[in-house]
Design a binder for these strands. Structure first.
Length: 481
DNA sequence: ATGTAC
């Protein structure tokens, strides 16, 4: 067995550690971290999960952990695992997460920080009113019924823009140009559909937010310019996912796979790693449902972004131009070279961000031919701290993936015990961050001290060769889910 | 993350 005491880490390079295969591990574990992050590195449980993932049928290369790794449901958050489809490789809902296609969208405003300053409170009030958030209630777009929801699930942000909720650039700069093709709205449970009907255009809660930020430092001028970013510029970052619909899809398919697994001769060290071959009926059914949730999440961010754009236009006259929109909870069928051979892989990224290298065919058209510019990678920090824009680099060691954020170190409970929401708001306001919360408890749970240092996480990602920093952004206002 | 437990 692989379970028991925490797996031993062997240092390979300054930013790379290995867990040697023991028991039923088919491949090693590989953890990208700096010595400074290492004492935390997600805790023993997260490392055990890295080892557990290495037992999955068809896994290739290694079970990878990004510098922001921490404990999650089955798979660690900050985990990347690729399986070889032709070799019986599996897909696991736990490798995607409950919030399917949770991700980040970043807009750059035609506005500098100094010009926002006199209108900042009014803009935050406007964004607070235009951004439904918190558990359950409210959405930007009240859908007419299941037929219209099916169009959202099939066409994602493309349908939203088609219906007038955005502009062409919003699609040009979105992962998969706004939608994935193989979604199957008809395959969703009634519960998933009902939960999806009334939440399109809503933040949710937890670590989800809409932030007004300012570009604090440009690290790579060429890439920043190509992405549409300059120092001192105002930006809007939106972090949210597929709400109750994605959650229900994950729940439904974990249950199905728990039953179906034995029929494929698969056993896993943790029930939460339930999985089936990609090339099977339940595997294909999950991927089609997951794709529907991915489209829902992009449409969700599209609608919230459009609402924010209207607030900015009304109160400042400035437009919002999409920099990029990228998921950090998704499985994708991709082609990668493994041991010198081109293979079709199912790449699970859970709390990990795709980071395509320069020249990749799936880059936005205006970035594709630039020699040193890869995919924009959006890394949200914790509330009140910096966020980053990175870019993909050639020869990334983990299937073109990198970190997704700061990563928790304190549980929600621990955080809520150590600070009151009102007090935290006062601290943030004193530091120049305007706060529009949804609940005091929710605010306290997201205190910056509950997270790793985002600067250290990004430094480790760069040091490990996963991505390169382009710009650092600091918050001036947060609308909290 | 989540109608914070079916």
């Amino acid at each position: 067995m692989t379970r028991g005491s925490a797996p031993a880490l062997v240092q390979e390079t300054a930013y790379r550690y290995r867990i040697d295969p023991i028991g039923r591990m088919r491949v090693p574990g590989v953890v990208f971290a700096s010595p400074g992050l290492l004492p935390e590195v997600g805790g023993d449980q997260a490392l055990q999960q890295v080892a557990d993932v290495a037992t999955l049928p068809g896994i290739v290369d290694a079970s990878y952990a990004m510098p922001d790794v921490h404990w999650g449901y089955g798979f660690p958050i900050g985990g990347v695992a690729a399986t070889d489809i032709a070799e019986g490789g599996v897909v696991s809902p736990g490798g995607v997460g409950f919030d399917i296609s949770c991700g980040v969208r970043l807009y750059a405003a035609d506005l500098d920080a100094a010009d926002l300053a006199p209108r900042k409170e009014a803009v935050l009030d406007g964004l607070s009113r235009s951004t439904p958030r918190g558990m359950g209630k409210g959405a930007v777009w009240e859908l007419s019924g299941t037929d219209q929801l099916a169009k959202v699930l099939a066409s994602g942000a493309r349908y939203a823009v088609e219906q007038g909720h955005g502009v062409q650039r919003d699609l040009d700069r979105c992962e998969d140009l706004g939608a994935v093709d193989d979604a199957d709205p008809a395959g969703l449970s009634e519960r998933a559909v009902n939960r999806g009907l009334h939440q399109l255009g809503s933040l949710g809660s937890g670590n989800h937010f809409l932030e007004v930020q300012v570009v604090d430092a440009v690290r790579d001028r060429v890439a920043a310019e190509a992405f549409g970013l300059r120092a001192g510029q105002v930006c809007v970052m939106i972090h949210c996912g597929s709400r109750g619909l994605g959650h229900q899809i994950c729940t439904d398919h974990v249950r199905t796979m728990e039953q179906a697994m034995a029929g494929f001769g698969i056993t896993v060290p943790d029930r939460q790693l339930a999985c089936v071959p990609v090339d099977s009926d339940p595997g294909r059914a999950y991927l089609r449902a997951m794709a529907a949730a991915a489209n829902y999440a992009r449409a969700n961010r599209q609608l919230l972004g459009q609402a924010a754009r209207e607030v900015f236009e009304r109160l400042t006259g400035a437009g919002l131009n999409l920099v990029y929109d990228i998921s950090h909870n998704l499985a994708k069928v991709e082609t990668h070279v493994v041991a010198g051979q081109s293979r079709r892989l199912c790449v699970h990224r859970k709390g990990a961000t795709r980071a395509l290298p320069p020249g990749h065919a799936d880059l936005p058209a205006d970035l594709r031919d630039l020699p040193d510019v890869g995919q924009p990678v959006l890394i949200p920090g914790s509330m009140g701290t910096a966020s980053y824009v990175l870019t993909g680099v050639p020869g990334g060691p983990a299937f073109a993936s990198t970190c997704h954020g700061a990563g928790r170190t304190l549980s929600r409970h621990q955080a809520a015990r150590s600070v009151r929401g009102q007090e935290l708001r006062t601290q943030l306001e004193r530091r120049g961050v305007a706060v529009r919360g949804a609940s005091w408890r929710g605010l306290a749970e997201e205190m910056p001290e509950a997270y790793k240092d985002i600067d250290a996480v990004v430094e480790a990602a760069e040091g490990a060769g996963l991505a390169r920093a382009v710009a650092r952004l600091v918050p001036v206002g947060v609308v909290k889910g």
